[in-house]
């Protein structure tokens, strides 16, 4: 083999390794979950890519929200939950006893279906998380608040009324406030559980555009009942059915020519 060939081969190997490293930030491996005796997740194996949008679709009760809540271990708030298998985050199993839950949940933030701002000012909503993490200086908090509100596209709309109650914002603004609140603690992964299902079409569009911008810096997993939304905004789509992942592929493939007949039947509305 010539010297040049060796170099090329080495480079290919390196870029291959890099691809593998870049590809997944979270990987579920043989994940099972029970609520009491009911198994809600069955042998889930999923590689969530870094800095991409992964959509999870499936009929009600298929386990998609359960999976989402498992990724930041919120599901354990339900007392009867039993889990086995792994979810690796940067290669570390999140169920490991050494994992700090507060750190995990600030790295893996969550946005819920219904906007849930605290009954506090806009400023205090955003500053809440950083304060919990020990940031006290007003100047620093002000910087974080502005940065987070800018990132969520809300800054221009609220910059002159940061002291007013967050409850006075419209539903769409409240949801973007919740996204800003999530960004304020500098997460890497954002979990979104049907984030636009309570919003009107215009606010939905704004949140969808925001998601597109956020994926430059964050890895996003979104559960949605709106299949057109999954098709519009995600790079990868996982189809869940009865607690199992039926198909996980590029969104383009899933919505143009899915491999599994059950996926095809679901996305074309034949059931679900």
């Amino acid at each position: 083999m010539s010297a040049i060939q060796t170099v090329v081969k080495e480079k290919q190997k390196l870029s291959l390794d890099k691809d593998v490293q870049e590809e997944s930030i979270i990987s579920a491996k043989g994940l099972n979950l029970w609520y009491g005796n009911d198994q809600a997740l069955k042998n889930i194996n999923l590689e969530i890519p870094e800095k991409q949008v992964t959509a999870i679709i499936g009929p009600s009760g298929c386990g998609k929200s359960t999976f989402l809540k498992t990724v930041n271990r919120m599901v354990e708030l339900v007392p009867i939950v039993k889990i086995n298998g792994n979810i690796d985050y940067h290669g570390v199993n999140i169920f490991d006893s050494k994992v700090n839950l507060v750190e995990l949940r600030s790295s893996v933030g969550m946005v819920f279906q219904k906007p849930n701002p605290f009954p506090k000012s806009i400023f205090d909503n955003i500053a809440f998380g950083p304060r919990v993490h020990g940031i006290k200086k007003k100047a620093e908090l002000t910087k974080i608040v502005e940065k987070s509100l800018r990132a969520s596209g809300l800054w221009d709309e609220v910059k002159d009324r940061l002291g007013e109650s967050a409850l006075g914002l419209s539903g769409g603004q409240q949801q973007r406030l919740c996204i800003a609140r999530c960004l304020a603690v500098e997460p890497e992964v954002i979990l979104m559980d049907e984030p636009t299902s309570a919003l009107d079409p215009k606010s939905t569009l704004k949140v969808e555009e925001l998601i597109q911008e956020l994926k430059e810096k964050y890895s996003i997993i979104i559960v949605t009942h709106n299949m057109q939304q999954a098709a519009r905004i995600s790079d990868k789509t996982a189809f869940f059915l009865n607690g199992e992942v039926v198909e996980f592929d590029n969104t383009d493939k899933i919505f143009s020519n899915p491999t599994d007949k059950r996926t095809e039947d679901y996305i074309t509305g034949r059931f679900g």
């Binding site: 299949m227 098709a231 143009s256 020519n257 095809e264 996305i267 074309t268």
Partner: peptide, 9 residues
């Protein structure tokens, strides 16, 4: 109807 997959095809 915003069809997808085989319906769209």
């Amino acid at each position: 109807q915003q069809p997808v997959a085989s319906d769209l095809r």
